[in-house]
Design a protein around this nucleic acid. Sequence first.
DNA 1: CTTTTTTATTTAAACGTTTACATTTATATT
DNA 2: AATATAAATGTAAACGTTTAAATAAAAAAG
Lengths: 331, 331
Amino acid sequence: MNIKDIAKKCNLSVATISRVINNDPKVADSTRKKVLSVIDKYKFVPNITGRSLRTQKSNKILVLLPTMSNQFYSEIIQGIEETAEEKGYAILVAVTNLQEHQEIKYLHMLRMKHVDGCISLFNTIDAESISSLAKTYPFVQCCEPTMGADVSSVEINNRQAVYDVVNQFIQKGHKTIGMISGDYYKTSELGRETGYKEALRDNGLVFEKSLLVKNFYRYEDGAIGAKKIMAHNPKPTAIVCASDSLALGATSYLKSEGYTVGKDICVMGFDNTAITTYTSPTISSIGQPRYDLGKESFKLLYEKLENINSTNKKIILPYEIIHRESTGCSK
Amino acid sequence: MNIKDIAKKCNLSVATISRVINNDPKVADSTRKKVLSVIDKYKFVPNITGRSLRTQKSNKILVLLPTMSNQFYSEIIQGIEETAEEKGYAILVAVTNLQEHQEIKYLHMLRMKHVDGCISLFNTIDAESISSLAKTYPFVQCCEPTMGADVSSVEINNRQAVYDVVNQFIQKGHKTIGMISGDYYKTSELGRETGYKEALRDNGLVFEKSLLVKNFYRYEDGAIGAKKIMAHNPKPTAIVCASDSLALGATSYLKSEGYTVGKDICVMGFDNTAITTYTSPTISSIGQPRYDLGKESFKLLYEKLENINSTNKKIILPYEIIHRESTGCSK
DNA sequence: CTTTTTTATTTAAACGTTTACATTTATATT
DNA sequence: AATATAAATGTAAACGTTTAAATAAAAAAG
């Protein structure tokens, strides 16, 4: 059942059927009604490939993830998906597993016109490549804009978030504060570490290298980090972490060493993933507006889909500091 | 740059170019070499939409997930993805959020030929609908085959897995064993619960309704379930859970009540997600071969893609019982 | 050196749409 | 009533491939 068949059933030309399908106002109400009823009767659905070939659009967008094994992305994708659907776009999710050749392979889908645009949650390729890609193809970075790249992006103010948290700690009397960060997501990491350092500085505290440890984002790294930090003298009374898994690992190490987290020492996570409420103590965390990060990313992408020459925008969304048991303590 | 342009550059017809692209042996070696060099020179990539329209295949398959916020699926998808890629298929991931209208919407992509086939990780629609869908379109169920549906599927033996675990508990001297299950994934749930009941029966123990609680799969439900089960007299000394989050919730409740999990009471999770090693105590779990579940699912789907009338197959893959701290105890 | 067979290449139609342009029909203006 | 204008519909080309069928070229057979 194709548009020709429908045209025959209606005693009309395919053009008119097409116009009805595409809500072209230049068709008489009576004919429109007739056509719609026939379409409905035969449950006709226009062939998307034919349409794509003709319009030179796939009506699909690519969502590029560094990994699937991160709770964090699911809601972002939902935000993208639901906003995209309103505009008639389907999403295609691909995972790079942090490998550059995978990333390049998937980005090639843009050039091959398999997809009309791309929202990327993380990129390894350099700023210049990103800029030039974004000049030619609709492309938006979400959460981790490449530094120095000329591209539309959506993120939170990572620097300010950690700044606020450390500031709160200091207001509560904490004097020695550690930080466990990662060594991969360059942009957000740098922001978070800068926030840490600036909050110390603005409160007259000196930044000490041994209180900031960087590694991966695995649970184990949280434990290792906490161990290193607790070796400091005087002993830290608060630790801010660049992810919830790090905070969890740190907490578990601290517990095993006899500390009561939330009392002897405060631990702050990042991303407010579900796991934060599944543990004892529950983990305080900095929450990102995940759904909206996705939603706004698509909106930016849509501007590019409509006009590739529209100016790049950088959107900053608000974060949220959620206190749970792990930060119950003042000093 | 399209196939016509290449043809012109080569002084050949488009047909010959097409044959080179598709490795048709009916083309002279010398011409093939020439064509390939031109293709390479201009970095020509065949337009997939044109090809799809002509061949009436999209070379895409749909992967249908109940939810993205489950660690468990990521590796399955990877298994599908990598196997699919070898055969030239790209995957499109969609999430139903357990809503039937979403499921129906996405399955419609099969009829609309947006995708050539579908691997579904969960279905709400009834067995008859599944059977008739699978008769017309390449369709495979992974992990949660609909009971009574005539369809290819891949899963583990859920019944046997729990049977084994409960049996082990009994061998170790446990006499009162509870189970926390869910109330959604009909197939795996029923299997797991049956395994529980049969192991009790085969060891001369009676199944008591109050020792099997069913609810959702959330963390909270694990805590609620454990509370109910511990109200039993005599007190249970082991609990098997239908998911890791349930096991985690149960463990957290038990700890808060002063029990030492792994010593006073054993807790077994299901799915062996990363979270099991992030907690104290670490959680024992039943592991499914996730990558292979995905891989085998695609293989089955591929059989259907090649011949929709090939017979349906049911594949059962091995599971793995992983003991960690939470099951350290014998009685 | 024909004729037949095999191999290589071309021609042209087809896939299912959309859309500029042409045409017909209806309505408004004189 | 004749003409101009507007609205509705039709015609046909185009999007980029693949692939039967037709043809041309080369090789084998006589």
